[in-house]
């Protein structure tokens, strides 16, 4: 895999244009839901690569699902769902859920802290912890309900698409761990091609509504899905038609002059953060017993 440079495309609360304007290949992750066996290798690979502590005492979820939801130390989750179809056929879906790396990221639009969220030219949307003020605007701004606040550090985190690995020419950790080739990584163009091939195969195998999930409401995503029932993304825990909210569009669009205020807001925010959480502390060590 070629090394993909982390050329910056957009920065949260920026007053000047992003420095990097070179064209870079757009990367993507493909999740073929029809091939997922819910083995959770990806969940653990993500935690281990990103040094996230396991939640040994997590609550019982009532199913095979690891956690009830994403959390600051759990950036991706296989959602398990039992669905009885009209013809009496049972389906047990296992769907990987994480940051979608939107082309038009609501989180970044919403973020008032300069440089806390960056979008690289390759499509990866990354959070820069040092610059995060813990205001949680990104959480509200995200149409996929992804970012999570760590109450101990007061900072928000989410899947980085392993930007560090990608910059070194490696695939993200989850992709490396996946045993069934349910997950693949590459340029978005190439993966769309593979995705459409798989959709055709699924159609032949009795899934007439199979399709690719790459929602246009957020400008497309850098995490795309092959869904056997693409007409019902809700069955997989995915929103049917996600959109960046119009207020956010205004925020970064016609109301750009507000940017000056944001700089101030950022400073204010940092102050608020200090008041709430005190000085930056190192992450609590392994919470597992």
């Amino acid at each position: 895999m070629p090394t993909v440079s982390l050329e910056v495309k957009a920065i949260s609360a920026a007053t000047t244009p992003a420095p990097g304007m070179k064209e870079a290949p757009r990367v993507a992750k493909l999740i073929d839901v029809s091939s997922c066996i819910g083995c959770k290798a990806c969940e653990v690979a993500c935690q281990e690569w990103n040094d996230l502590p396991p939640s040994v005492d997590r609550p019982f979820t009532g199913s095979y699902q690891t956690m009830p939801d994403l959390s600051w130390n759990f950036w991706q989750l296989i959602k398990f769902n039992e669905i009885l179809r009209g013809d009496g056929r049972l389906e047990w879906t296992m769907t990987k859920y994480q940051c979608m790396h939107c082309a038009d990221p609501g989180c970044l639009r919403a973020c008032p802290a300069p440089g806390a969220i960056v979008q690289y030219a390759n499509g990866i949307v990354d959070f820069v912890q040092e610059n995060c003020i813990g205001c949680g605007y990104c959480i509200t701004g995200c149409p996929f309900d992804v970012p999570r606040l760590n109450p101990q550090t007061g900072r928000v985190s989410k899947c980085t698409l392993c930007s560090d690995r990608v910059a070194a020419g490696l695939e993200p950790a989850c992709i490396k761990a996946c045993p069934t080739n349910c997950l693949s990584f590459g340029t978005k163009e190439k993966l769309l091609l593979i995705a459409h091939q798989r959709v055709e195969q699924l159609k032949e195998r009795g899934f007439p509504n199979a399709g690719v999930y790459d929602p246009p409401g957020v400008g497309g995503t850098h995490v795309i899905y092959v869904l056997p029932h693409a007409d019902r993304p809700e069955d997989y825990g995915l929103p049917k038609d996600p959109k960046v909210s119009w207020t956010l569009k205004l925020w970064k669009g016609p109301l750009k002059w507000l940017g000056h205020l944001i700089v101030f807001g950022g400073i204010l925010g940092a102050f608020v953060h200090y008041l709430r959480f005190g000085p930056h502390r190192a992450r609590e060590e392994d919470t597992g017993k």
Binding site: C39, P54, D57, R58, T66
Partner: peptide, 23 residues
């Protein structure tokens, strides 16, 4: 279960997190 290997992995916090209780 895929999350565990016999009676070993109940000692490993990552595996335990994945399925942490007898059901």
């Amino acid at each position: 279960l895929t999350e565990h290997f016999h009676y070993w992995t109940k000692n490993n916090p990552y595996n335990v997190q994945l399925q942490n209780e007898f059901f």
